[in-house]
Amino acid sequence: MSRRALGQLEAEVLAALAGLGGDAGTAELMARLEGEPAYTTVGTILYRLYRKGIVTRVRDGRQYRYRLAVDESALVADRMRDQLRHASDPGSVLSRFVRTLTPEEERKLREILGGAE
């Protein structure tokens, strides 16, 4: 099994939590992740996200249930902006990014930019 970068697993856990649309326990989130990460790994990621203030948690018996404390789209957009800020040629990065979009993503981007046909 190949290992993910820690930031990637964090992003996957956040996306899974957002996809559930409410609160979830560690086992529920594990079931939505590819590659069968260990329960303790997902628990550690959730604890780190809690410490960063990205998720909240409430005790439910012997476990915690987690909920997003921030807007997922703002969080991802901030990450994208941060990556662009560190690029030596942001235009090239944006160009490459746009070429990887699906037709639906491209349509949505055009709509956002005001260029809907």
Rank of each mutant, 00 (worst) to 15 (best):
P37R: 04
R99M: 07
P103I: 15
A38P: 03
L14W: 03
V58L: 09
S95C: 02
Q8V: 13
I45H: 00
E105I: 00
D23W: 10
E117L: 14
I112P: 00
L109E: 01
M30D: 01
L9M: 14
V58R: 14
R96T: 15
I45R: 00
V98G: 07
R62Q: 11
L94W: 00
A27Y: 06
L17R: 10
G7S: 02
V76L: 04
V76R: 14
G25T: 10
V42S: 06
K52C: 06
P37C: 08
A116T: 08
R107T: 13
Y66M: 13
V55S: 09
G61C: 13
V58M: 04
R110Q: 11
T41K: 13
V76M: 06
T26R: 14
L29R: 05
L113T: 07
E12V: 02
R48M: 06
V70R: 04
G61L: 06
G53C: 11
G21C: 02
D71Q: 14
L33G: 08
Q83H: 11
L29A: 08
I112S: 11
A24R: 00
V13C: 07
Y47K: 13
R62C: 06
A27L: 12
E72L: 13
Y39F: 10
L49Y: 07
Q83I: 02
R4E: 12
R99T: 14
A11F: 07
R96K: 05
R59A: 10
D89L: 09
I54L: 14
V93T: 11
T40V: 15
A77C: 08
L33V: 01
Q83V: 07
T102H: 14
S2W: 04
R62N: 14
L46F: 01
V13H: 00
Q83G: 10
T26G: 02
R99V: 11
S95A: 12
G21Q: 00
S88A: 15
E36L: 09
P103H: 10
R110P: 01
M1E: 05
D71K: 09
I54S: 03
G91M: 07
